[in-house]
Every structure is written in C-alpha cells, then in structure tokens.
Simulated assay, not measured.
Amino acid sequence: MNSATASPALGLLLDVDGPIASPVSRRIAIPAITRDLVALAEVGIPLVFNTGRSDAFIRDEVVVPLIAAGLPRGARVHGVCEKGASWFSIGPEHGPGGMSEVVVDESLAMPADFSAEMDALVTGDYADLVFFDHTKRAMVSIEQLTSVSSADYLARQRGLDERAMEALVTRGFGVRRLDDVRPDAQGDVQWRIDPTIISTDIESVLLGKDRGAERALELLADDGPLPLSWRTVGDSRSDYAMADWLHAHGHDVAHVDVRPADGIPTTPYPVLTSASELIHDEAGAEFLAGWVADVRG
C-alpha cells in the first residue's frame, strides 16, 4: 500500500494507440511524451494505460521507454490490456522487465478454434494486408501492416470483418460489428467485432474501455487514494466509455479526444480537444506538457 494519504489532484486513464503511440509507426515517436509521463508519475499522478493492445506490446513500446527514462520506484503506474482482459503494475520495483506478473481473465477469451481459423485466414488470403497478433491472450486482433497505406487497408477491412462474423455465426454465436446499426446477427450477442483505423479487434462483449476503467480503479485502490479528478484520453468514439464509466460512478472527469474528426458526442462531462488543432500523439504530447506545467505550478 502506498504510504501517501492525500488524494492526488489528477489521475490519467490513457489509451495508447493515437494519444501516446503514433498510429503510423505504432511506437512512441515523440520523446517528450515519455519524459512527461515520467514527470507526472514522479509527483504522484496515477497513470493507467487502458488499451486494446497486448501486455507484450505495452512492455516493449511503453514500459521499456518509461523505465529507461527513469520511472521511479513506487510510482502509481499500471497497465490494463485487451480492454480489461489482462492487467499488471509497472515500475522498476517489479524486476528487470519493469512489470508485475500479468493477470488474465481466461473466462473472456475467444474460442481457440475460432482464433486458429482467423490466423489461417490472415495467412492465406490477407497476408499482403494484415498480420495476426499472436501476443493477445483473450482477444483476436488483426492489424494493418505498416507497409500498407491506410486507404488500401480501409478499402478491404470490411470484407475481412465479414469473414470473421461468418465464422462466429457458423459456430452458433451471436455477434455484431460495433459500428453497424443493423440488427444483431443471431440471438444473444456474445462476441463483438470492433474495427479501428489500423486493426480489427474481435472480443467478448464484456470487454471494453469501460471494463478497463473498472480494472484501473481496482488497481489504484490497492496502492493509494483515488484521484480527485480524472482525464481520460483516446482517439476513437469507443474511448469515451472510460469517461462514461467514471462519470456514472460519481467521479469528476473530462475526456480528451485527440481525433475529434469522428464527431464529438453529447456527454454529461466536458470534452477537450487540442487548442492547436493537433491530432493523435501530437495532441497527446500537447496535453501531457500542459498537465506537467500545471503540477509544477
């Protein structure tokens, strides 16, 4: 348990792709982002990465840079991956890798035979477009190759998603595509297809950024007092679920949208966008720099 008794003024719940990592390179491309994350952690601001990415991706692309940049022992930093299916703590006190043991909710994992079929489909028909993410423990994720243009990927993404839906319906499952307004394919919906600008996630309907927010607060409750207010940060409409959950459970929150071109929904909490009209990780860097300036007075 953290020895601090005062509640931090601010807590950050951060999507990774977009606000932290470049959606082009899939890495932290702006060094100031890592520097400012460490600076916030040093003054006791809790940071939780709430992402659809795997723990292996977060280890390589987020944890390693944070440790190298001097993340202090005892900082309140955690990772919630695969939209709430796995979670862990981050810091040098957890050994050379900088991560505690990963906890996985196996009850939320996709059927193994479906995962194998999607892996074979990618290898056979879509190897020029995407790759199958073998580091996922619960979800099935199929991601755009960095050598493929966004336009080429998006032109074929829908067809790949339809193949995944057919494979699930054939098995007797209820499934829907997250951005589809048509009726659900069959019966009670158990699985969801969630397309993003660089990938498609196929997952349990019990997973989501709201489930990730719930996991995040459970982790923080174990190491100290909860923040007085929150900023959630994301680049897609599904990321608003973080702020939705926090607001519904009585927390003061504002959401930062680093890609507002999708449209800003009506919300009961403030929505913030870049004053400089920056997007993605450039907008994320702008907000982080502002929060560092605020806490340093």
Rank of each mutant, 00 (worst) to 15 (best):
I197C: 11
V295M: 14
A9E: 11
S238G: 03
A6H: 06
S238D: 01
A39N: 11
A4D: 04
A112L: 04
P72A: 15
I90Q: 01
L168R: 07
W87Y: 02
M165R: 13
D210N: 00
S54Q: 09
G172S: 07
G172N: 07
P8F: 05
E282W: 04
S147T: 14
S25L: 08
L288F: 01
E214C: 04
E166I: 10
A21V: 10
M118I: 02
D184R: 14
I202F: 06
L160M: 09
G18Q: 06
L108S: 00
A9L: 13
P225G: 03
V258Q: 15
L108F: 02
E82N: 11
D133W: 01
P72Q: 15
V205H: 12
D194S: 01
C81V: 08
L288C: 06
R27W: 08
G11Q: 05
S276T: 15
W245K: 03
N2F: 01
S3N: 08
T51I: 09
T51D: 13
A120S: 12
R53P: 08
V233W: 02
R53C: 11
S141A: 15
G84Y: 03
G98R: 00
D55S: 10
F132K: 07
L37S: 08
G91F: 08
L168Y: 07
P227Q: 03
V102Y: 04
G98N: 00
L145I: 15
V80D: 03
E101P: 00
T51L: 07
H247E: 09
A285E: 02
S149Y: 12
G263D: 11
V104M: 01
P195R: 09
D201M: 04
R26K: 09
T170F: 12
V253M: 11
A69K: 13
A41G: 10
P265C: 03
V130R: 06
E218I: 03
S150M: 12
G224Q: 00
R231D: 06
A261N: 08
S3D: 12
S229Q: 05
E117W: 09
L207K: 05
T196Q: 10
L40M: 13
S276L: 10
A221P: 01
E106S: 00
Y153H: 14
V295Y: 12
A283M: 10
D17M: 04
S54K: 05
F173W: 10
T196I: 12
E166D: 14
A213K: 06
E42N: 06
